[in-house]
Amino acid sequence: MPLTLAVEFIEPGVRLITLQRPQALNALTTQLLGELADELNAAQSDHNTHAVVITGSAKAFAAGADINEMAERNLVGILDDPRQASWQTLTRFSKPLIAAVNGFALGGGCELAMHADIIIAGEDARFGQPEINLGIMPGAGGTQRLLRAVGKSMAMQMVLTGEPISARQAQRSGLVSEVTQPEFTVERALHIAHSIATKAPLAVRLAKEALLKAMDTDLASGLRLERHAFTLLAGTRDRDEGIRAFQEKRRPAFTGE
């Protein structure tokens, strides 16, 4: 049973993972990241889980790495940081991942949100990479994912000044897809997760893969991957079911085959 997370199974096919270190604004410890990786591995292997929502508290999604834990690690500890395996689990997670962000998403918290495929933010959300204020820099994808999400100028400003941006700024920059009233952030994220969970699982997985590939490859290579995935899906039972359901004016019953 995880100690720093709460996990709920919400029908149909959605897991809600809530970070629970309110006394530290959900600062990311080795234990929390390890438990999160374990839950994502469990979701990855569960055929009944089709989408995952990650959220925090009303005050903070996650306010960065745990500074007290960071202060205890020497250079060797940093180079051999067990948290790197946890971050790799987030990177490899192939099912749709949605972040519902209220309050602070700073440092590692912003990096955690950026591992999600979709970010829904409350009006009060604040996104930032303040590591420069500690004499360091983002180390869990903050420079790479942030630049791809918001562009060079905004990424440079956020990383080099350490100053956060608002939810509306994040939306205008492309970091966030929607901004809601804080009390509806999780509800909206779950609604999107439910919608995705009703779709054909193979199509969702391959569509996500193709979209992510578009971020780090040239157009020709991306188009080849897209055509290959499209061809694979053309031979699935779910494709046939989707067409029949459309013709018969009913909801499709996808099976993942």
Rank of each mutant, 00 (worst) to 15 (best):
residue 7 V to C: 12
residue 10 I to Y: 01
residue 11 E to C: 01
residue 16 L to Y: 07
residue 17 I to F: 11
residue 17 I to E: 00
residue 19 L to A: 05
residue 21 R to K: 13
residue 22 P to T: 10
residue 24 A to N: 09
residue 28 L to C: 06
residue 29 T to G: 14
residue 29 T to V: 04
residue 30 T to L: 10
residue 33 L to K: 07
residue 35 E to V: 03
residue 41 N to L: 15
residue 42 A to E: 13
residue 42 A to Y: 08
residue 52 V to A: 05
residue 53 V to M: 04
residue 54 I to M: 04
residue 54 I to N: 01
residue 59 K to C: 02
residue 60 A to Y: 02
residue 61 F to K: 01
residue 67 I to K: 14
residue 68 N to R: 15
residue 70 M to P: 00
residue 71 A to M: 13
residue 71 A to R: 14
residue 72 E to T: 12
residue 73 R to L: 15
residue 80 D to H: 10
residue 82 P to N: 10
residue 88 Q to S: 11
residue 96 P to F: 11
residue 97 L to A: 07
residue 101 V to D: 01
residue 103 G to R: 01
residue 106 L to K: 03
residue 109 G to A: 05
residue 110 C to T: 00
residue 111 E to D: 08
residue 111 E to H: 09
residue 116 A to N: 07
residue 134 L to Y: 11
residue 136 I to N: 04
residue 138 P to C: 02
residue 140 A to K: 02
residue 141 G to H: 06
residue 142 G to M: 02
residue 143 T to S: 13
residue 147 L to V: 09
residue 150 V to Q: 03
residue 155 A to V: 01
residue 158 M to V: 12
residue 162 G to E: 01
residue 163 E to L: 14
residue 166 S to P: 06
residue 169 Q to K: 12
residue 170 A to V: 11
residue 172 R to M: 07
residue 174 G to L: 05
residue 183 E to M: 09
residue 187 E to D: 13
residue 195 S to W: 10
residue 196 I to Q: 03
residue 198 T to K: 13
residue 201 P to N: 08
residue 204 V to S: 00
residue 205 R to K: 12
residue 206 L to K: 09
residue 208 K to G: 06
residue 212 L to Y: 11
residue 227 R to H: 12
residue 229 A to H: 15
residue 230 F to L: 09
residue 230 F to R: 12
residue 233 L to I: 06
residue 236 T to W: 10
residue 237 R to T: 13
residue 238 D to N: 07
residue 241 E to M: 14
residue 242 G to N: 04
residue 246 F to D: 04
residue 250 R to S: 07
residue 254 F to A: 02
residue 256 G to T: 08
residue 256 G to M: 03
residue 257 E to I: 10
